[in-house]
Computed example of a mutant assay.
Amino acid sequence: MRNVSTRLLLTCAAIGVAGGLVFALNAWIGGTVAALAPLFYGFTIGVYFLPGVVAQYVIRRGGVAILTAAIAGLVTAPLQPIGFWATLIAIAIGAFQELPFLITRYRRWNTWLFIVGGIVAGIVCAAGMYRTLAKDALDAASGAILMTGYFVAPVVFTAIAVLLGAALVRTGVARGLRAEHTRVTRSA
Rank of each mutant, 00 (worst) to 15 (best):
F84S: 10
Q80M: 08
G94A: 08
P100H: 03
I93T: 12
G94P: 11
G73N: 07
Y106Q: 12
L99S: 02
G94F: 07
F101T: 09
I82Y: 13
L99T: 04
A95N: 06
A95R: 02
A77T: 15
W85H: 08
A86Y: 01
A92T: 11
L74A: 09
V75K: 02
L79A: 11
P81T: 05
P100C: 06
A95Y: 14
P81R: 05
R105W: 07
I93P: 12
A95D: 03
F96E: 00
L102M: 14
Q80F: 07
P81D: 09
W85I: 15
P100G: 04
P100M: 04
Q80T: 07
Q97F: 03
L102D: 02
A86N: 14
R105C: 09
Y106I: 06
T104V: 15
T87L: 14
W85G: 08
L79R: 05
G94S: 04
I89E: 10
G94R: 07
I93C: 05
L79H: 10
Q80K: 11
W85Y: 13
A92I: 08
I89R: 10
A95W: 11
A86Q: 10
L88H: 11
P78E: 11
L102N: 01
F96R: 00
A95I: 08
P81K: 07
P81W: 05
F84D: 04
L79F: 13
Q80G: 13
A72L: 06
G94E: 05
A92G: 15
A95M: 14
A90I: 02
I89Y: 14
G73T: 13
L74S: 00
V75L: 03
L88G: 15
W85M: 13
F84E: 06
G73C: 12
I89V: 15
L79Y: 04
E98K: 00
L102K: 04
P78Q: 12
W85L: 13
A72P: 15
I82H: 13
T104E: 06
I103W: 06
A95P: 02
R107C: 00
I93Y: 08
L74R: 00
R107P: 00
L99V: 15
E98H: 00
Y106R: 13
F101Y: 12
I91W: 05
F84I: 15
I93A: 13
V75T: 11
G83N: 10
T87K: 01
F96Y: 10
L79K: 06
A90M: 03
F84T: 07
T76W: 03
A77Y: 10
Y106K: 06
I103G: 01
A72S: 12
L74G: 00
R105H: 09
G83F: 05
A72I: 10
P78S: 13
A90V: 01
L79S: 09
L102F: 05
A86G: 15
I93Q: 11
A90Y: 02
G83Y: 05
V75G: 03
E98S: 01
P100W: 04
R105G: 09
L102P: 00
L74H: 01
F84G: 04
I103Q: 02
